[in-house]
Amino acid sequence: MTGVGSAPTQRAAPEETPSDPVAAAWTEYLAAARQLDGVRRGAATAAGAQARSVQDAREELTAVRARLAAQQSRLRERGVPAMALVPSPPEVTAAARSMAAGPAAALTALRAAGECADAADGVLDARGWATVAGLWRGSRPEGWPARLRNLLVYGPVALVTPVLQIVLVLTGSGARTALAAVLVGLLLPAVAFTVGMAGVGRLFRPGPAGRTDRTPRFGLLVCGVPAALSTAGTLVVVLAG
């Protein structure tokens, strides 16, 4: 019990420590600085991406313009009227609308135009082959079997050896002519095969796998067999004479 006249013992409530205004201001400043740095980094990234898109769009535009100028010349040579090669107002409006979203949209539209130019080149090349080879309308060697298509290249170059050997027989005689015929028969088939391989790669477009089937074994036969036969025949004629 407590004694008479004594006051009850009370605990004093802890006093709250006032916050430091300097520390609070510094914390708020750091948070704001971090937020501002994030905004700055995001803006720099967006600006860099936009600059790259603008540069890519300019390069793509230059390439597409060159392609279209070449195609326009080819079409004019084939009798297409100049007015048919100029875009109509609705086409211009649709193109402008597709590129209104910014450089990225313009780059996408230009790449789509490049793909259309590739398709147009394929059509023009196919029609050119049909005209040169005298084939029926709409056909093209790219759709033929690989050996039959490549024969258009290997066949002509393989005839060089027999023709040259015939010239040697008609213009000379004796051992020197025989030696020259043998050398021609040994060297020119390899040259003809190399030229044929390069010609197939240059003249025919790659297939779905991205490669052109050059049928090298078939090319060796086409270039080698006529040369061997003509060399044997040339030797028989020269030695018999």
Score class of each variant (00 low, 15 high):
198 A>W: 10
122 G>F: 09
230 S>D: 04
90 P>L: 07
3 G>E: 11
99 M>W: 12
238 V>Y: 01
25 A>C: 04
127 R>C: 08
230 S>N: 00
5 G>K: 06
112 A>S: 14
103 P>I: 09
54 V>L: 09
181 A>M: 00
238 V>T: 12
115 E>G: 13
230 S>I: 03
69 A>G: 08
192 A>D: 03
141 P>D: 11
236 V>L: 12
140 R>W: 09
108 T>S: 11
123 V>I: 15
58 R>E: 12
161 T>F: 00
56 D>E: 14
221 L>G: 08
44 A>E: 14
67 R>D: 15
43 A>E: 06
74 R>W: 07
95 A>V: 09
10 Q>N: 05
185 G>Q: 02
125 D>V: 15
216 P>M: 00
170 L>I: 01
114 G>R: 15
45 T>A: 14
47 A>T: 11
3 G>L: 13
191 V>C: 05
31 A>I: 11
177 T>C: 02
53 S>N: 12
181 A>P: 03
101 A>T: 07
212 T>C: 06
37 D>N: 08
229 L>Y: 05
13 A>R: 07
84 A>E: 06
229 L>M: 04
233 G>K: 04
31 A>M: 10
132 V>N: 13
116 C>Q: 13
236 V>Y: 10
123 V>D: 13
153 V>E: 05
86 V>D: 00
190 A>G: 10
228 A>Q: 01
124 L>N: 10
135 L>P: 08
32 A>T: 04
4 V>C: 07
21 P>F: 08
70 A>K: 13
92 V>K: 10
25 A>H: 07
153 V>W: 01
104 A>R: 09
172 G>V: 04
12 A>K: 07
159 L>I: 02
226 P>F: 00
33 A>R: 14
185 G>L: 01
235 L>E: 03
161 T>V: 00
196 G>H: 02
152 L>W: 10
182 V>N: 03
68 L>S: 09
127 R>K: 11
70 A>E: 14
188 L>D: 02
145 P>G: 08
197 M>V: 10
84 A>F: 05
103 P>M: 11
122 G>L: 10
231 T>L: 06
151 L>V: 06
161 T>E: 00
93 T>Y: 07
122 G>M: 10
234 T>I: 02
225 V>C: 00
174 G>R: 06
167 V>T: 02
207 G>C: 02
224 G>R: 02
85 L>Y: 03
30 L>F: 05
225 V>W: 04
223 C>Q: 03
7 A>I: 09
26 W>R: 12
58 R>M: 09
28 E>F: 09
75 L>C: 06
19 S>C: 00
117 A>R: 12
109 A>N: 11
54 V>I: 13
34 R>Q: 06
96 A>K: 13
170 L>W: 04
149 R>P: 07
47 A>R: 13
75 L>W: 04
119 A>H: 15
195 V>N: 01
207 G>V: 00
8 P>G: 08
229 L>N: 01
191 V>I: 11
49 A>L: 13
128 G>A: 15
131 T>E: 15
206 P>A: 06
32 A>N: 01
26 W>D: 07
78 R>S: 05
186 L>F: 04
186 L>Y: 02
69 A>T: 11
116 C>W: 14
73 S>A: 11
3 G>T: 08
